[in-house]
């Protein structure tokens, strides 16, 4: 479900399967560990087949944690449809990041999705 590859340009955490409340603790732990260890973390959620609100909250939390530590969290291959769908349902998709200018790389700014 979780796989980590360390590269020259930072670590890549690849997540697959269901990211729902059943796996939320494991996901939180994996994120916590690699957010601590990496200056730049690439999060690849392309293989996530199902996501719920806990997943969205954890992604948000990881992003904020890294911003607070002046680190970078990047979404490696864009968000998969499963997460975009939940993000839209939950009203997470937005036009501006929640912390103003410094968060223009907010995970939930999904240009193509806005207005759909």
């Amino acid at each position: 479900m979780f796989e980590l590859v360390e590269g020259e340009r930072g670590a890549t955490l690849t997540v697959s399967g269901e990211l729902t409340i059943q796996n939320a603790s494991v996901f939180r732990d994996a994120l916590r560990e690699w957010v601590e260890k990496s200056d730049v973390l690439h999060l690849d959620l392309g293989g996530v087949t199902d996501a719920d609100l806990t997943c969205l909250q954890l992604v948000c939390s990881a992003h904020r944690s890294m911003m607070n530590m002046k680190k970078n969290l990047n979404m490696a291959s864009g968000l998969p449809g499963s997460i975009i769908k939940t993000a839209r349902e939950a009203g997470f998709v937005r036009e501006h990041g929640c912390r103003g200018e410094e968060s223009n790389n907010c995970v939930w700014i999904i240009r193509d999705e806005v207005g759909k």
Binding site: A24, S25, R28, L31, R32, T54, L58, S61, S65
Partner: peptide, 8 residues
């Protein structure tokens, strides 16, 4: 943040 969050 991740250190404080209760995932559930």
């Amino acid at each position: 943040s991740l250190n404080e969050i209760d995932p559930e």
